[in-house]
């Protein structure tokens, strides 16, 4: 019986951590929709956001101000990335250009963070709830911090989905993703839509950074790249470009990781994620909910 409870706890934690992976996967999806670009600086964005919040808090700003400032900063960085690393390179025949250039921006942020705050991990304070706050539900004690992560993650994804489905902006984005030139002809400012997609994606990285940092308890400059690969695994598992896929892919990955960590070894957690990535790419590259791309000649 105790074992069963242990498993439930692992699954619960997996779902909560997985919701952060979903947010990262979502961040990939947004720019993927508009430009077929996956931002290789997304992980460092997330790390940089956590670091910025820490800095603003240490200056003495209240949480709300720190978060707003952080969101504002990352939006600007998102715009810069789009202008410098994506727009000039996205039309070239190979993807190597923008992959390397966005990765470069990410590494620059990582290097900058190391220069400013040092290479060591910094303690990140608990957000709203204390890390010791628990509520018992169904016989298992659930951390309020984790529940907050889950709730916020789900909430944001729900809002995103509504925005994409119901508003004119969402429709414009769909139009641009279908054919940017055609969308321009129809009077949609394709370039602005692309820029906005990068801002939105950066904001999602900001939220993910805010949510995951209190769970990890500390942040270091190099944690962004690692978690980015996990978010990517979630996106691929669900199917690149699918909202439903990002949600389910992230949570599935979170649960699998925690179960492996709980029953086998915590050091095998990431190894399993990589195994999933290889398996899914080799067997079903379009993921669980993605659409199979048709080669055009």
């Amino acid at each position: 019986m105790i074992d069963f409870q242990f498993m439930l706890e692992l699954i619960f934690m997996g779902i909560c951590v997985g919701s952060v992976y979903s947010l990262i996967a979502h961040g990939f999806n947004i720019t993927f929709w508009t430009t077929k670009v996956v931002n290789f600086a997304h992980g460092p964005f997330l790390m940089f956001c956590s670091m910025l919040i820490l800095m603003f808090l240490s200056i003495g700003f209240p949480w709300i101000v720190a978060i707003l400032l952080e969101m504002f900063s990352i939006s600007i960085i998102g715009v810069i990335l789009e202008r410098v690393s994506v727009r000039p390179l996205v039309k070239s025949p190979t993807s190597m250009g923008w992959i390397v250039a966005t990765l470069g921006v990410g590494l620059f942020l990582q290097a900058l963070a190391t220069k400013i705050w040092g290479a060591q991990a910094l303690a990140f304070p608990a957000f709203i709830f204390e890390s010791t706050d628990y509520v018992p539900i169904l016989g298992i004690s659930m951390s309020l911090q984790y529940l907050l992560v889950l709730g916020t993650g789900l909430g944001i994804m729900l809002i995103m989905e509504l925005v994409m489905k119901k508003t004119i902006w969402g429709k414009a984005m769909k139009a641009v993703s279908f054919d940017p030139d055609l969308a321009s002809v129809m009077g949609i400012k394709s370039k602005s839509v692309v820029t906005i997609s990068f801002i939105l994606s950066a904001l999602l990285a900001g939220v993910a950074g805010l949510l995951i940092a209190p769970i990890y308890g500390n942040v270091a400059p190099d944690f962004g790249m690692n978690i980015m690969v996990l978010g990517f695994v979630a996106a691929v598992l669900g199917g690149m470009g699918s909202s439903k896929g990002a949600l389910i892919g992230g949570m599935t990955l979170g649960v699998i990781e925690k179960l492996v960590g709980g029953y086998i070894s915590t050091s095998a957690e990431h190894g399993v994620a990589f195994a999933i990535l290889i398996l899914i790419l080799a067997i079903k590259p379009e993921g669980l909910f993605g659409i199979k791309a048709v080669q055009k000649v």
Binding site: S85, G97, A101, L103, G104, V105, G106, L107, F108, A111
Partner: peptide, 11 residues
């Protein structure tokens, strides 16, 4: 930092 800037500008 220099490596990463090289990555950004080289292409």
């Amino acid at each position: 930092m220099i490596y990463s800037l090289l990555l950004v500008i080289s292409f």
